[in-house]
């Protein structure tokens, strides 16, 4: 009583036990809700990143499927008469004329197979050469009306390139039937 009286005299506020307990409960609940809010923020951020990753993964899977389809395309692979074809190999002779052929049958046949993608073959050895097998770029329109290519996922596979003709890009004789190169596939989202 003396203590209360002294506090009152000094103008200090005195809480009852019930008030203290209520404040304790309020603080506990406040901290609990802060933790819950943090948890929800963390969960949504994680979900967002996870969705983006899934989209990238699906795009990459699409690129792998296109690469495999292109590798086993009878228009390109190294056939060997009636015997087994050469593994992971493309024929340069076939590559020379394929772009024009695919381009003329893009809408009626190849688009169903490759969709919006780009398939490019690069030779590294014995000389550097490039071929575009298929190209159908997907564009997106920005807010300012500008058209830009959509997001794409590149995939690479190393291949052997067979040169049956024995001629290089300048029509000079080359010795060595099998060269080294790679196939580069870009799949658009």
């Amino acid at each position: 009583m003396i203590l209360t009286k002294n506090f009152r005299q000094r103008g200090a506020r005195v809480y009852t036990k019930a008030q203290m307990q209520m404040m304790e409960s309020l603080v506990t609940m406040f901290i609990f809700f802060i933790l819950v809010v943090f948890g929800i923020i963390f969960f949504f951020k994680y979900q967002q990143i996870s969705l983006q990753e899934q989209e990238t993964e699906m795009l990459a899977q699409q690129a792998i499927d296109i690469s495999l389809t292109a590798l086993f395309l009878s228009e390109l692979y190294c056939s060997n008469g009636e015997s087994e074809s050469v593994d992971n190999c493309m024929d340069i002779q076939k590559l020379r004329g394929i772009e024009q052929f695919i381009d003329s049958h893009k809408q009626d046949y190849y688009f169903d197979m490759f969709g919006y993608s780009g398939i490019y073959v690069h030779q590294i050895y014995p000389e550097k050469r490039n071929w575009t097998v298929y190209e159908q770029v997907k564009t997106v329109t920005l807010e300012n009306g500008e058209k830009v290519p959509a997001d794409k996922e590149p995939t690479f596979f190393v291949i052997t390139l067979r040169n049956n003709l024995g001629l290089n890009s300048s029509n000079q004789t080359v010795y060595g039937e099998f060269g080294y190169g790679y196939i580069h596939v870009e799949a658009y989202s």
Binding site: Y175, G176, E177, G179
Partner: peptide, 24 residues
Amino acid sequence: VRKGLAYSTMSAILNTEVECRTKA
């Protein structure tokens, strides 16, 4: 991708022919 790439690269390296005067 890594496994496929390792296999195809190894196979391509071993199959590649080096030009050696008038032979490969």
